[in-house]
Computed example of a mutant assay.
Amino acid sequence: MPLVTTTRTGLVEQVIAQMRQLVASGEWPIGQRIPPEAELVQALGVGRNTVREAVRALAHAGLLEVRQGDGTFVRATSEISGAVGKLCTTELRQVLEVRRALEVESARLAATARTDTDVAELEVALRERDAAIGERDPERVAHTDSSFHLRLVQASHNPVLIQLYQGISEAVLSSVATTFDPTVPPERTVSHTELFEAVRDGNPERAAAEAGGFLDELLADVEGLPETDTSARET
Rank of each mutant, 00 (worst) to 15 (best):
A76D: 00
H157L: 06
E128Q: 08
R99M: 04
S175V: 03
A17P: 14
T179P: 02
R136H: 15
E65C: 14
I80V: 15
E123I: 01
R206C: 07
E205F: 13
A107F: 15
R151D: 01
T228D: 04
V4Y: 15
M19A: 15
E217M: 11
V74W: 04
S81L: 00
L96K: 14
V222I: 15
A110P: 14
R8P: 10
R67D: 05
W28D: 01
A120W: 01
V184Y: 04
R93H: 13
V12Q: 15
I16D: 03
G69H: 03
Q21L: 10
T189I: 09
V199T: 08
I34H: 08
T178W: 07
R200A: 01
E103M: 04
G212E: 00
E139P: 10
P182D: 00
V172Y: 02
G47L: 06
I80M: 07
L150M: 07
V66N: 11
E13R: 15
D118T: 08
I168N: 01
I16A: 13
F73V: 01
V153N: 09
I30Q: 14
T9F: 07
A125Q: 04
R233Q: 06
I16L: 04
R20C: 14
I34C: 02
Q166N: 03
A110E: 01
K86A: 09
E97M: 13
L102R: 06
P185I: 00
R127V: 12
Q42V: 11
R108D: 00
T235V: 11
E135Q: 14
S169H: 11
S106K: 11
S156A: 13
E103P: 14
K86W: 02
I133F: 14
L173F: 10
L109E: 02
V124P: 10
A171I: 06
P138W: 02
L215N: 04
D130E: 12
A101F: 10
R127Q: 13
V51S: 08
T112D: 07
H192W: 04
G212R: 10
R233D: 00
L152C: 12
V51P: 13
E27S: 09
Q42I: 02
L40P: 05
P2S: 07
V51I: 13
V172I: 06
S169Q: 12
M19K: 05
F73H: 03
G82N: 02
L173D: 01
P186K: 08
A131M: 05
G213P: 12
L152S: 05
R99G: 01
L92Y: 11
E135V: 06
V41Y: 10
T189V: 10
H143N: 11
S147I: 00
F148N: 05
G10W: 01
V141C: 11
E27A: 09
T112P: 08
